[in-house]
Amino acid sequence: MAKSSIKIRAKLKGGVTTVKCLMNHPMETGLRKDKKTGNPIPAHFIQDVVAKHNDAEVMNAQWSGSVSKNPYLAFKFNGGASGDSVSISWTDNKGASESATAKIK
């Protein structure tokens, strides 16, 4: 399997799981221009993010191109146990998608 471009850290503390993740994506707004050619750079950004704890969806997010390049997302949910899985998947405006899974520490 190809290495996923999503990096996930999930830690349990006091009954709350903190998930931090970093995604690899250009997040082009569609408003920037190519410095050399002057042509507009087409919009290319992550639109949907889904976060799951085991099979349960704990959060989903919808984004615009105003989220920074190589997006960072952190969130918390109640519960979770050491060894449980946390998965993150995204879909961008061109229909590309990626997902990754990590174990709670």
Binding site: A56, E57, A61, V67, Y72, F77
Partner: peptide, 14 residues
Amino acid sequence: FNMGQGAAADVSTR
């Protein structure tokens, strides 16, 4: 950010 099961209202991004 749409909160699902057990989600805490604590989100960070850039």
